[in-house]
Amino acid sequence: MNRAAIQSTLAGTEPERDATELTRHGSTLSWRVQWAVPLAALFDLAIHLLFSKRAPAVETHSYSLLMYEIIGVSIVLNIVQRFWMPLRSWMRHMCPIFTAAILLFGVWDVVTLGFQMLPLPYFPGPAAVLRSLISDRGLLLDSTLHSLALLVSGYAVGLLVGLVSGICIGWSGPIRYWGMPLLKVVGPIPATAWIPLAMVISPSAFVSSAGLIALAVWFPVTMLTASGISNTRASYLDVARTLGAGRTYLIFRVAIPAAVPNIFIGLFMGLGASFLTLVVAESVGVKSGLGWYVSWAQGWAEYSKVYAALIIMAAFFSTVMTLLFKVRDRVLVWQKGTIKW
């Protein structure tokens, strides 16, 4: 990158497209970028076949199939990108990351299957994990759906209660006086610490787990909502009052919108806490879901299934997180260009 490009990158703008830039970045994708992914997959495949005697044939079969698919898809994409500009810029951005990820699979394969540097059955190779993913897909899907149902119900309740209590504590002096000490004492207790109590109180494991998730979400949402509401700029409230605003307008059209950036921080913190609580609650109480699946597979010492479930969890949780980011971008469109997280 030349200096102009570096400066404009620092300034957060597109680099200027001079003649050399065009040939380097603009019109075509360099060969290196185009072939990095298929070559990495080929490399993984070669490594695996080198050691494939040690692996069951069925694992080798599905792993090779995956690598062939990666090679095939990336070659197709290499052809399509010549005619489709958006794909090209996406590939330019993503190919290095994909290449690194695929190469890591190769390294993993060498360390586990190849030289058996890590003890079995705790550290299976990628082919074994892939095989578990495929063979147990029904149960994994079912577990994911159960986790999703539990997460959504717990999160929704925690969110609603947290918003209401946060708004009340943030707006009203008397409620803050009585509510804040409670919040400060009860809130920091990790929701999972209530598990013994929840198991005794509630009629079903699902309800108690959802309640624990709600509790985990409630605290950060309440805290951040309350601080957002009570820190509403006084001048916004003054302006609104000189415009003839009553209390309803001040709360719902000034204080709450002003608190929304803060509320979203609470929602993200709550989401993180809810993942944690979900997995713990499922592994001790509920007899379904990804958390349960992990401890169940561990009980049978089927560690390839444990890793398979972890992969699903990573995809699941990061998708939910991404969704929340999308919602935030929509809601906080008025902050566009001013937020940096």
Partner: peptide
């Protein structure tokens, strides 16, 4: 006011 104090969310 000196600061326009527009509601930034509107």
């Amino acid at each position: 006011f000196q600061d326009p104090n527009l509601f930034p969310w509107l």
